[in-house]
Amino acid sequence: MIDLRVRERPDLRPTAAAAASNGQTDIVLMARGLSFWYGDTQVLDGIEIDVPGRQVTAIIGPSGCGKSTFLRCFNRMNELVPGTRVEGAVVFGGRQINDRAVDPVEVRRRIGMVFQKPNPFPKSIYDNVAYGPRVNGFRGSMDDIVESSLRRAALWNEVKDDLKKSGLALSGGQQQRLCIARALAVEPDVLLMDEPCSALDPIATTRIEDLIRELCEQLTIVIVTHNMQQAARVSDRTAFFTVTDAGCGILVEHSETQKLFTSPADERTEAYITGRFG
């Protein structure tokens, strides 16, 4: 458990519905009454969600519904944008993390992120993976952690003979897996993925999707995707966000993926996933 400062807030327990639907699964991440502003513009309003551990939670919704912004609330990446404001609570491991007193670097070590476009550093494959452990003062065998991270990211067999090659020389799909290996190298508990396959071809996409299913046996994954079929394929639970007339993102429905895609509870979800939105 990381030492994060606790500020008391009302009722941060998982909702009864989430506890019932998840059986014994622990809730790893929670949002409670989460609202977010870019300047004067509110983009998220009162989001309440429980993310169960060692499962894949997908977030879907139309453009502008705030799903990527919401994802970035989970590891405080939004703070890097000037003029932003957050209200409500994000709870990780029983602690509130959107508190200025909490070290955001430690939060981001425990909650890693993979972005839409592969963004390896202009360094060797080895150094890309070793970067995180080095800056975190890792003192063990760097070779071991690089190899295990590359293996977990299903990239080891393709690069093991050429670890000194630049990460930028890899194909798009390999670069994305390198970024996943880089994120895994600091042993995060949660991996946030913001449309990780949108820049990849179908074969590379399949490899990443297979990897997501393998990784969720060890860690919790939250993925934002525009591709509803991808959400249906890879996730255990799906959250549907939409945008109000005022341009603000709200959570409409969050349930088991199988249920959401076959019999959603809300007609707005039905309209979106059947392509009749708007």
Binding site: F261, T262, S263, T274
Partner: peptide, 9 residues
Amino acid sequence: QQPAAGDLR
């Protein structure tokens, strides 16, 4: 058409 929800049913 990759139907979902009511369409799939």
